[in-house]
Design a protein around this nucleic acid. Structure first.
Lengths: 346, 346
DNA sequence: CTGAAAGCGCTAACAT
DNA sequence: ATGTTAGCGCTTTCAG
């Protein structure tokens, strides 16, 4: 058995309890617990022993109020189901490791109103910084963020006006580049399958860039289909089947994300369609799941992990350095042709 | 343009600022902002207007210290990449909606030491409750939780001793039931593929229950293979191939989770193996991704969403009711035979 | 190296 | 319905 505290305290322990237990002033106890160096080794030991014996856990609320410092970084993202964001969060966590800062996550479900609420709620804890996805926010949200007096890093997307700093990729450009690759490979009858747009600004921008590039090449989308909710893999499968039935002469399908792309790929393989000869496919994100398919879906890596790392780096750096905010980092997504875009024109 | 505050405040605004701006005492401003009813409509309007105009965001740190109440619920889980936990989190979020409580998430990466650190860090914010995955914790973690004087709900697993309340399924029983179904279908040469165990107690317990049931039927595992890290879908594919080469006479593969199971299924389909005739397959979790495969992998739904909801319900209820803790809820995972276990013995 | 005093921004409890 | 007082548990600042 591990030694249990003498009495199970109903009232949480305070510094004073530790102070009395070891006969050292509250102030000195506080110093020890904050790892300050200006305490003699002897007292340090006594204090540490007492604190551990009692099972004392500091009250950060009081500490934060007194010191006006909160070691929290607010991270606001649209969703966890998406596969995209867990990777970003990992980048943030890793980069914050050892800085003394701790990330706290909030979810918006792609709803501006929810974002506003989440931000209000989280800012009221006076965090040291904010990282949030996207550049599109309500006026109230922007006002809150601008007025908070802390570093704000908008991530994922650089196509728009940042409040403070921004780390991401240009989704418009990503869409264009994919279009160029597809056209270069000789595909001409192109369909698009994606999420319902108003929710997802980045998917929308990719489509806009994609369409623009097609138009400049004298082409236009031959068919489009949108979905919302449900299993993305299944939706990809179903939408693909529907679209191929409706528009049989398509020679390329561009998916707004890898998950529906994977569903589409599975569908095509089962139907025995010649990919990429008769039909080309491409998704977006560089999701890990693509590694497990028998042939590699063309995609574009969205640099999600690096985005998280860089964003966290900015927040952490701004605490120490006296850098003025307003950093802008545009990453370049890597195009991966995989096995679903043919390598030369037919 | 939206109206911006007169001066961009370097110092965050306080109640006092609002008080002065509208000529009402700090106390009354505080009442209004907390939606208390004992304020005249007239003053309420004035206060609200002033607060909005200034862009005031309350300081919860001060509020929490004064009121000794923190509307936060700490949620500690091993991983976000797992697909399992986002669903649990959603259940928690939904159940907490409207209770005034807010979930805050922490990640342990399946590391006991990290769990201890995360708990220490989060408990120091004096949350109203804790929800954490699993029943296995370090002594120090248990001590902290027991001493925190708040509801503690351990989730996912009921096979063990709970600190306070517990909501989950019996993974041992889940393993047994799957074994019974497999044996009943006439399979006899059974292989197991899963995560490296020490990390994942629930996967370990499923395997233990599974093995026990086999033994009672006079059988034993014919082959086993473990993995760690990497793309689960790909690992499932690779491990399956390796195992079938090594032990060609296997007639069933039991996977510790659906993602590697899906990889295995894809592998078998490509090889043209007769599933479920010549070879049966089963996974665990009831993941959404299975919906997108051409044939349904047998699985067991882990009730992850309901677990989240019930756990959150306990934490929320304990605030209002004067219920003593120690609730125990065991959910029953539903066995889904899908298309990868044959329906009758050959 | 250690301690005493003051106060962080808010709210409970008590006036009025 | 509104105001006043005291203090939440800690850290800053200043003395010793």
């Amino acid at each position: 058995m591990s030694p249990s505290p003498p009495t199970a305290p109903r009232r949480p322990l305070t510094l004073r309890d530790v102070s009395e237990a070891c006969g050292v002033s509250e102030m000195t106890v506080s110093r020890v617990l904050r790892n300050r160096t200006d305490v003699s080794p002897a007292t340090r030991e006594r204090v540490l022993a007492a604190a551990k014996a009692l099972g004392y856990v500091p009250n950060k609320i009081a500490g934060a109020l007194a010191s006006q410092q909160v070691n929290l970084v607010t991270v606001v993202i649209p969703s966890l189901g998406n596969m995209v964001f867990p990777e970003v969060l990992r980048g943030i966590s890793d980069a914050l490791e050892g800085t003394g800062l701790q990330p706290v996550f909030g979810i918006t479900d792609y709803l501006a109103e929810r974002e506003e609420n989440v931000l209000y709620e989280m800012l009221s804890w006076r965090p040291s910084g904010v990282i949030l996805a996207g550049l599109e926010h309500s006026d109230a949200s922007r006002a809150m963020l601008a007025g908070a007096g802390i570093p704000v890093v908008e991530i994922m997307d650089v196509d728009g006006t940042a409040i403070d700093s921004v780390v991401g990729i240009s989704h418009r450009r990503a869409g264009r580049e994919m279009a160029h690759a597809i056209i270069a490979a000789g595909y001409r009858r192109i369909g698009f399958l994606g999420t319902k747009m108003p929710d997802d600004h980045r998917a929308r921008k990719r489509l806009e860039g994609f369409s623009d590039a097609l138009r400049e090449a004298g082409l236009e989308l031959a068919d489009t289909e949108y979905y919302a909710g449900g299993s993305a893999l299944l939706k990809g499968r179903q939408m693909t089947e529907a679209m191929l039935n409706r528009t049989p002469d398509l020679d390329f399908l561009y998916y707004s994300n890898d998950m529906i792309g994977a569903g589409g790929l599975l569908c095509c393989l089962e139907k025995g369609i010649d990919v990429p000869g008769r039909l080309g496919l491409a998704g977006f994100n560089g999701l890990e799941i693509l590694d497990g398919l028998s042939i590699r879906l063309a995609t574009m890596d969205a640099c999600r992990r690096e985005i998280g790392e860089r964003a966290a780096g900015i927040v952490a750096g701004l605490r120490t350095d006296d850098v003025i905010g307003g950093t802008r980092i545009e990453l370049s997504p890597r195009l991966e042709l995989g096995d679903t875009i043919r390598r030369e024109s037919p």
